[in-house]
Write a protein that binds this DNA or RNA. Structure first.
Lengths: 124, 124
DNA sequence: TGGCATGGTATCCTTTTTGATACTATAGGC
DNA sequence: GCCTATAGTATCAAAAAGGATACCATGCCA
């Protein structure tokens, strides 16, 4: 997550804005959620989409989102292990938010010199 | 800002989501932008809306948003000083994003036990 | 018998972010 | 002369987030 959870909600009515942000501003959470909009992914599938995230961070972010009820984690008792991550209904309801964030980002790409054009890199 | 700027944009196409987040996830930035949607505000007006933010943090966040071109800062050569903050066109274009964030937050208020009902506190 | 793949944990350390506190300038009012 | 209000700065310290690295279990394959 970003800042310490729930410590900045004493500011209504803008609170709701901050509240939502606390759930999705952990590093990489936004991208992960975005990718999950396309469907269930295994742990390593997500990893491969985000080459520069360490395993530790990815696990951490995923667990937080699971704790927040945004995604579900399904462990299959196999070897090698298989763990599927998918959006919950609540997570899927973030779609408008995620799309708004993405659209603004694309529309203001000039602010992010290091961002490759949407759809470019090895990600997809 | 949240994380170090522009260090997580190597993950297209979800990058745009993260990119936008880097601009608005600084603590309190979301609320400040939200309040500015209603019009220009002086420094202390913003402070009074967010009683729990220190002056140092508020100044810091405002300066960052100014640097990112989201808000404008107008100093009036008066004493005592007067400084107006307002959204730039770019900042105003965040409205859909901010509204999406707010709506989701309100709709999922159960996740934020400490959040007062929208419109409650001394903020408005 | 050794190596590989998956999905993790555990530790340690560094960088960032946030908070607390104190200090400043100056016109105007009493 | 002293106090107030505005919009800051400066400094120090604490807390949180992030990164690097190493280690683990185990069924399958050659």
């Amino acid at each position: 997550m970003g800042r310490t959870r729930h410590d900045r909600l004493d500011c209504s009515p803008g609170c709701a804005v901050e509240a939502t942000l606390t759930l999705i501003d952990g590093k990489w959470k936004g991208v992960v959620l975005f990718h999950l909009l396309d469907g269930t992914l295994r742990f390593n599938e997500i990893r491969r989409k985000l080459p520069s995230v360490t395993q530790r961070m990815l696990t951490h972010q995923l667990r937080e989102m699971e704790a927040d009820g945004l995604i579900s984690r399904t462990v299959f008792p196999q070897v090698p292990p298989r763990v599927d991550y998918a959006l919950t209904d609540r997570g899927r309801s973030l779609q408008p938010v995620l799309m708004a964030l993405k659209q603004w980002g694309d529309a203001n790409a000039d602010l992010f010199p290091q961002m490759k054009p949407s759809g470019t890199c090895d990600a997809a």
